[in-house]
Design a protein around this nucleic acid. Structure first.
Length: 593
RNA sequence: GGACUGGUAGCUCAGCUGGAUAGAGCAAUAGCCUUCUAAGCUAUAGGUCAUUGGUUCGAAUCCAAUCCGGUUCACCA
């Protein structure tokens, strides 16, 4: 049990004994005491003044005295300032906590819950390579899975690959027209980039054709419809749906190139999935649900044959679920896939990590599933994250302002290599060890940069300024871990020696222990909010506290054997928390750097 | 226009289920390596929490209005 939970319980029953006041333990307000005041934890008393009919100062003193008398081993002192009761916790409590936890490698993690959740993330299109926005999505999705796993959920990570549709056909047409049989191998290009280049070529050619047609007297709209390359693309989509062999052949070949490229990138950034769905297999799902919906009168049919749902009563609009030609639309596939996942895995929650541009879509999706009374409905949760923007605004592929994922990862690793070289601390590393270290640091910097901000908020990335390696960053945390490991290598910790308590805990020591103790609660909070940034901030603060202590006091050469043992145990547990926490963010920590 | 969403230090962000004097990092300035890794530590400076009103013991936080951004509202995916 965490100490704040314990305190809440104690205060709740104290209020009951003193004033016959029934305040549920979880409604007691407990904060960490601000550093400028004496004490470790603070009870906020204002809420009790009315029912008790006493001033907060009086309540504070009575409560403080009561706690002091009845919990001598736990609470050793108090003071009251305005409506705040500051409590001091016994050193022996902290020492007991440290003794119990310091060698526990799974410190902070919770017991298995026997509950299953699904996290869908990444969801790329196969017509172009991954960019910075995908990186945020991938890091978030992976990390949220790890956070949920750490608090006891069984997590199924899934990915839906958007491998069909007009956009894919655009790349295919362009390759037919301009490729001259080129392949990624023949041009020495990564497969996803290779295919993406033809997508760009399509757009270039399309623009030229439209321009010519407009010059010949067509309106912009007519020109866009009639451009030969666009017509060819639409024909190809029809041929694809009909399963025309040569089209299928080309489609498979080009997607194959893309997957090869994606695999390389996923491997590098550490994204993995338990189950990958392909839209080419799922795009027909949900058709039968339209029939069901019509029978249940959830949907209605218009005169032209198209099928709709009326969501105006829910504050939304009418939404099409089947075209008049009988083909299904995007949302219908999603309903079908939601049901498919439900049948296949039966998770109690299904989290979709998808950008906030699709808030409306997911609102509609959940609503329709609810109205159809599908088992999947309740668990649908859209984890809506903000876009990564440039200082100039959104990234636009047409304007060439897209930050490519592979380029960025490589750049980060290069910078990591430069800095490591400059600092010259690992001159004895061989080439392989160095490469691994540069990778860990470069990727760590990138992941931490993207994960440290609240997922819901959009964030700005300035390509002109490289991502920092100092301060609130991954490398700073990795560095501190390496630093601790260095201490533990030099000064062996005897696990059998028990902590003593003849010398009081110093302020910095106590602050660090208090912070360590929060770890489990932080994981719970990150899981509840589906927000890895809470964890990132926590680790950063932990590391700052450790470094302050490190700068002020010696670990290996402490002033006494008692302090040496205490600090080495603190160091070990700090390293464990850093490593566990960073791993949950998908970031490795080195032994040396 | 409707719906949703954001506005906190020069920059990037915390804090938002109401609690003590609004916090970090970067950038700036000044210090700290003959003892455990200086990718570090310490200090200084930097704020009308968009604006106005309301709710109350107390508001960056809740409510309303206004201003300024963003997303979205396709027989696209």
């Amino acid at each position: 049990m965490s100490i704040t939970v314990e305190l809440k319980g104690i205060v709740s029953s104290a209020l009951n004994s003193l004033y016959e006041l029934n305040i549920p333990a979880d409604e007691v307000l407990v904060n960490g005491t601000k550093p400028e005041f004496e004490g470790d934890y603070t009870i906020v008393l204002f809420a009790y003044t009315k029912p008790v009919r006493k001033s907060p100062e009086v309540i504070g003193n009575e409560l403080g005295n009561y706690l002091l008398e009845n919990h001598k081993d736990f609470i050793t002192g108090f003071n009251v300032i305005k409506g705040f009761l500051n409590l001091s916790i016994a050193d022996s409590y902290w020492l007991g906590f440290l003794q119990q936890s310091f060698s526990n490698n799974s410190f902070g993690k919770a017991e298995r819950l026997q509950k299953k959740v699904m996290v869908e993330y990444s969801s790329p299109n196969t017509n172009k390579p991954l960019h910075l926005g995908h990186l945020r999505n991938n890091f978030l999705g992976w990390s949220i899975g790890a956070v949920l796993n750490s608090v006891g959920y069984d997590v199924v990570k899934t990915c839906i690959v958007n491998d069909r549709g007009v956009h894919i056909c655009k790349s295919m047409i362009a390759w037919q027209l301009f490729g001259n049989g080129a392949t990624p191998a023949s041009t020495n290009t990564k497969g996803d980039h290779f295919v993406g280049d033809y997508y760009v070529k399509f757009n270039d050619e399309f623009k030229l054709q439209v321009k010519d047609l407009v010059a010949a007297g067509k309106t912009q709209e007519e020109a866009e419809k009639e451009a030969p390359i666009m017509k060819a693309t639409q024909q190809m989509l029809i041929d694809w749906e009909a399963g025309k062999p040569e089209v299928m052949e080309l489609w498979k070949t080009m997607n194959g190139w893309v997957y090869e490229g994606f695999d390389t990138t996923y491997n590098k950034i550490g994204s993995d999935f338990d189950k990958t769905y392909y839209e080419s297999n799922t795009y027909l799902l949900g058709k039968d649900l339209v029939e069901q919906g019509l029978e249940k009168k959830v949907f209605f049919q218009k005169d032209d044959g198209s099928v709709w749902i009326d969501l105006t009563a829910d504050g939304l609009d009418e939404k099409l679920v089947r075209r008049k030609d009988g083909t299904s639309v995007y949302i219908t596939q999603d309903i079908g896939l939601a049901e498919q996942k439900q049948k296949e895995f039966g998770a109690e929650k299904s989290i979709y990590v998808v950008g906030d541009e699709q808030n409306y879509h997911f609102k509609v999706l959940k609503l329709i599933c609810e109205k159809l009374q599908l088992p999947s409905a309740e668990g649908i949760y859209h984890l809506s994250y903000g876009m990564v923007e440039l200082p100039t605004g959104k990234m636009k592929s047409r304007e060439g302002t897209v930050v490519d994922a592979d380029d960025l990862v490589d750049e980060m690793i290069t910078i990591a290599a430069q800095k490591t070289e400059e600092l010259g601390k690992v001159k004895d590393f061989n080439a392989e060890e160095l490469e691994k270290l540069h990778y860990i640091i470069g990727l760590g910097a990138l992941k931490f940069f993207l994960l440290r901000v609240d997922p819901k908020k959009k964030m700005i990335f300035n390509p002109e300024e490289s991502i920092d390696f100092h301060g609130f960053t991954g490398p700073f945390i990795q560095y501190t871990h390496a630093r601790i490991k260095s201490i533990l290598r030099k000064f062996e910790l005897d696990n059998n020696k028990e902590l003593e308590a003849t010398q009081p805990l110093l302020l910095l020591e106590k602050q660090l222990i208090i912070h360590i103790e929060l770890f489990g609660a932080v994981l719970q909070e990150s899981a509840a909010d589906l927000d890895p940034s809470k964890l990132a901030v926590y680790i950063f603060n932990l590391v700052k506290l450790f470094n302050s202590l490190y700068a002020e006091h010696s670990f290996g050469n402490a002033e006494s054997e008692e302090k040496k043992l205490l600090r080495l145990k603190m160091a070990q547990l700090t390293a464990t928390v850093i490593k566990t926490g960073m791993n949950i963010l998908g970031i490795e920590v080195p032994e040396r750097m």
